[in-house]
Design a protein around this nucleic acid. Sequence first.
DNA 1: TATGAATGAGCATTCATTCAT
DNA 2: TATGAATGAATGCTCATTCAT
Lengths: 225, 225, 225, 225
Amino acid sequence: MDIHLNECSFIRRGTIKDSIQEQLIAARRNQILDAAVKVFATKGFHPTTIKDIAREAGIADGTIYNYFENKMALILGILDRLNESDQRAKDFSLLNDEVNIRSFMKAYLRHRLALLKADNFEIFRVVISEILVNKELRELYYQKIFEPTFVMVEQYFQQWADQHIIKPVNLKLAMRAIPAMVLGLIIEHIIGDTAIEAEWDALPEFLTDMILDGIGVTNHDEEKP
Amino acid sequence: MDIHLNECSFIRRGTIKDSIQEQLIAARRNQILDAAVKVFATKGFHPTTIKDIAREAGIADGTIYNYFENKMALILGILDRLNESDQRAKDFSLLNDEVNIRSFMKAYLRHRLALLKADNFEIFRVVISEILVNKELRELYYQKIFEPTFVMVEQYFQQWADQHIIKPVNLKLAMRAIPAMVLGLIIEHIIGDTAIEAEWDALPEFLTDMILDGIGVTNHDEEKP
Amino acid sequence: MDIHLNECSFIRRGTIKDSIQEQLIAARRNQILDAAVKVFATKGFHPTTIKDIAREAGIADGTIYNYFENKMALILGILDRLNESDQRAKDFSLLNDEVNIRSFMKAYLRHRLALLKADNFEIFRVVISEILVNKELRELYYQKIFEPTFVMVEQYFQQWADQHIIKPVNLKLAMRAIPAMVLGLIIEHIIGDTAIEAEWDALPEFLTDMILDGIGVTNHDEEKP
Amino acid sequence: MDIHLNECSFIRRGTIKDSIQEQLIAARRNQILDAAVKVFATKGFHPTTIKDIAREAGIADGTIYNYFENKMALILGILDRLNESDQRAKDFSLLNDEVNIRSFMKAYLRHRLALLKADNFEIFRVVISEILVNKELRELYYQKIFEPTFVMVEQYFQQWADQHIIKPVNLKLAMRAIPAMVLGLIIEHIIGDTAIEAEWDALPEFLTDMILDGIGVTNHDEEKP
DNA sequence: TATGAATGAGCATTCATTCAT
DNA sequence: TATGAATGAATGCTCATTCAT
């Protein structure tokens, strides 16, 4: 059980050893977060006890407190990992080659929705629920995920607007309405609406078309002046 | 709903007295729910104690249990009141005179968003958070609000589709995407996005146009085949 | 519902009216005690609420407090009624005609055990349980039932001893051991021993013979000097 | 039962440590049960709070729940200890050398009554009271103590009957009547009868004689046919 | 006298967190 | 660093009792 790191003479303090330390710590943190995700997803945040998580992780209760300050820090940690796995910027930049906005948007939505489906929806349910209600978590989420995303997205929208690829609409609202729609649909799904899951694969195309073209039939009589 | 006590010249036992009883009970329930809304909105559901609510309502702890089975029943009660104040069906039917879909949608969104702003957003935060995480509440919400609303809305969409006022898109998704967008925007707002509140009054028009016309510039090259 | 006693002009205050009052009160008390016995027997003393009893009696909670000081007074009341229905003295005096001690004892045990079987055992369970643990009840029981019974029984035993119908044994213990045996058997029965109920009808004869003759085989070798 | 730690020269993981663990756990359980006995005996079961017991044991409330599932489990634990201290089988077998049934019975009663007096009567009061009223406890008591005892005792009685040491009476009743008498006398004592305590030391002899010989004077006229 | 709504003290139990080993 | 026993504050809920009507 004891690891005699010091026996390794060529390791200089503060360099490799620390790196190993960090990796060990990161590994433990992930082990704990994995367990937390699993249990939170099943039982929800409040009903889950530290003991539940410790048992799931195969460690002692107290050990969790060596890696996380308190129970809420676990949600923070989960949020962080979700964010990392997100890599929105990367998502976007990878899509930069897409020839036009429609393909771009479709590909992006497909990617995002695939990620959502891959991760267990259940953990979103818990995280969103807690974000809504926990100020600290909310502010953190806003600063680390929300704002940066919008700052980045705004550039794209501005560029598209400049290039007259999209109409000169209220950009701030436009770029908020789109993720809002995705978020809203996910919540509708979580709440129990079966229609969304049934049409999950149709969503990227549908949403893209709706966002870009609308669902209204354009005619001169109905068209707004 | 109106009770004209005076019309009843011949008083039968168990009628007026019961009616007064019912009113008293309803009044107490509302008194308690008002207090609950206030405290929940401030502290959230879980951190709020029954004592907090009783204190706010100016009554004893135990009294709450004469009117609500348990703490969760308070959320149910709040949800019910929100739902009643909603009267979605009425909203829609009142709008039936609107000349075209655009005015209709715009008026409807204006109405909904006004309601949302009138009610304290804070209580939505709490209610949604709890719905996400509480199965009983979720199922109840789904049955009493979600499903009925969509059943009703579907008729409208079907009618519009039949009249070729809207494109022959996936109706189920379309009619889910719109409230999803509203819900998503509210959540973004709750989370702390200031842009939405700033543009609140522009939302109905913007959303209507986006839904009906899209934000993409239509041209023959970009248009999908 | 209103009873206009005053219309009855010939009733003089303090005499007949009071007597009716008393009867009414007694009737109400019995109504309440009947309900209490029923519910206590089913649920036990502590798990039974005043509301349970009020519901069973078809009256309001508060009404019970017009007739009994508190919940414990109900047990006292039940005990009193059990005692009254007992009428041990009467039992004994009725049996005075019995020709000999054996018939007397047998008849008495038969009578007592029949009473026990007639009453629901369940209420004994509750009353004894509470007596064991509640000092006030215990002392009351001791004074009102226990002691008077033994005082009376002692006379019989003394008389029998004087007449050399029973051996010159420790009378105090003898006359305590007999009801002890009955009590103990009842408790064994209550606890779940099926043998006692099965042999219930054989008990009076068996106990009488055992008490008077013993179960040992008398022979000169074994006989104590 | 004896653990000779030193005999184990080759220490296997999970053996000694676990054994120490078990001893610590057993010690804590006993510490808690001691406190519980003390407080229950003074205040009774229901009026005693977990806090009372914790305070008496010098530990925190929560600690009790690390060793007992709930308050009732404490009574179970007490019952178990009483049972262990009982060792009825041992009692009997130790007496097997007794030359005759009279000495045997006398010795047995003396032993049982001594045990009862050694333990605090008060705790019997509480345990019996609770057994009478608590189904779970009652069934457990019946299975673990009542039935096994009678199964064992029946053998003795059968043997005595076969050897014509006792009369061919209803054995099932006979062997129930004897402990019933002891139990009944204890309850009479608990209820407040001073005579029993005063004659405590005379009880074994008196009861034995009464059971074996009866208290009736045998004469040919009175003798039942 | 009957009612039953209001009361609020009281309590078992939970569980996040600590800390000695 | 890992452990898990100990902690004790915190709280939902019950229910005997009161009292205005």
